[in-house]
Amino acid sequence: MALDQSFVGRTYPPTPPYEVGREKIREFAEAVGDTNPVYVDPEAAKAFGHSDVIAPPTFVFSITFKAAGQVVRDPQLGLDYSRVVHGDQKFAYARPVRAGDRLTVTSTIEAIKSLAGNDIVDVRGEVHDESGEHVVTAWTKLVARAAEEA
């Protein structure tokens, strides 16, 4: 069933702040096997001009995807979450995410398409810090596969 086009442009309320912790960044860097010292050593991060350890580029997805859950699980939109796969992902950074950040995400539905029975939803997540400064924008393409292929 095609999704309701009137949801295009809909913006959801900002999420409660997510506080980025040094140890969470370390855990993520270890999980992807990345030994770059800027993720774990504040002095190494400072040598590159960062005020604290920074997070790997894709770290912020955990936060934006959780926020996109508002869209995915919106009963009025009616996306079948059990059939959703990740199509595309893009980030544009104003600055890297760093330890101590308190980040909020505002999700907007940018586009809804139907292609060969698949429902395709593009969600943009704008990530801001505590002072309201823009940190990163994440674009996530979600594809709900056609029921007969599931």
Partner: peptide
């Protein structure tokens, strides 16, 4: 890694 401005796949 802070020198990454955009990244998409």
């Amino acid at each position: 890694p802070g020198a990454v401005v955009e990244y998409g796949v």
